[in-house]
Design a binder for these strands. Structure first.
Lengths: 128, 128
DNA sequence: AGTTGTACCATTGGGTCACATGGTACATAT
DNA sequence: ATATGTACCATGTGACCCAATGGTACAACT
């Protein structure tokens, strides 16, 4: 498994990691059940901070591409290949795009949409 | 019609203006058909920049609280009183809140939601 | 001529957030 | 003992946005 992180790349490092691991799974280089290097070890090899690698692993696990088995290491998820295809990011972008479009058609200003958005994400329920 | 703008108030000046005009309409101080002072004149009286007043007027017109009749001045909208009640802001907040909740339940990170939001509002269609 | 609403341009100050870094600590495995 | 994934704390840098200010200009009304 060859992974390369380009510091000059505007794409965040943890995203580069995620993409390359997903690519390896899709290509078959990584098969379900295979063990992944530990967070600290991979951080050493790629000259990254362990936190950066941990972040990538955490997101990969949420997408069910890998499985963190506590203190027994991390492994490729059984359904990894399938779960690589469905992109949560795109789904999120589409959902938000639909809502934004609907609001705009109602005449709401982009400024107001932004303003309301920070309110919505900060858990503020609409005042009665 | 007495309007007071407090510069030390954290609430933006154009919002203070909007609120007070709506309040005057609701209270009956301003009746449908009444003429409003011109942008420049009101800006002078309140010692505001004309742009600030123009912004408030523009938003009030969108909410159908006032009617700008081009070069013939600005008047209170016939249905002003009713249109003051329905709050577009709340509707916006609720709509966005629903979407955010749905995304969160799908496991999407707040960070990712924010990130996708700027993409959505910048007119980026989800990559196929 | 003077005023109207509106549209551009640009800048300043303040705030929030993402990314990455660094350190420390924990309970549980080998 | 050593290594594991994970959790907390904190800092710095850069980017983006908002509110507000200021100036200029236009076409159309009184």
């Amino acid at each position: 498994m060859e992974i390369t992180i380009d510091i000059d790349n505007p794409v965040p490092q943890f995203e580069q990691l995620i993409e390359q691991i997903k690519a390896a799974v899709t290509a078959g280089t990584l098969k379900p059940g295979d063990a992944l290097p530990s967070i600290r070890q991979l951080a050493n090899d790629l000259e990254l901070n362990s936190k950066t690698v941990a972040k990538a692993y955490k997101l990969l696990e949420r997408d069910a591409v890998i499985q963190a088995k506590g203190y027994r290491g991390t492994y490729v998820h059984p359904d990894a290949k399938a779960n690589c295809k469905f992109n949560l990011q795109e789904w999120t972008l589409r959902k938000l795009g639909e809502t934004v479009t609907e609001l705009r058609e109602a005449g709401v200003t982009d400024s107001e949409i932004r303003n309301a958005f920070v309110g919505a994400i900060n858990g503020q329920s609409p005042a009665k």
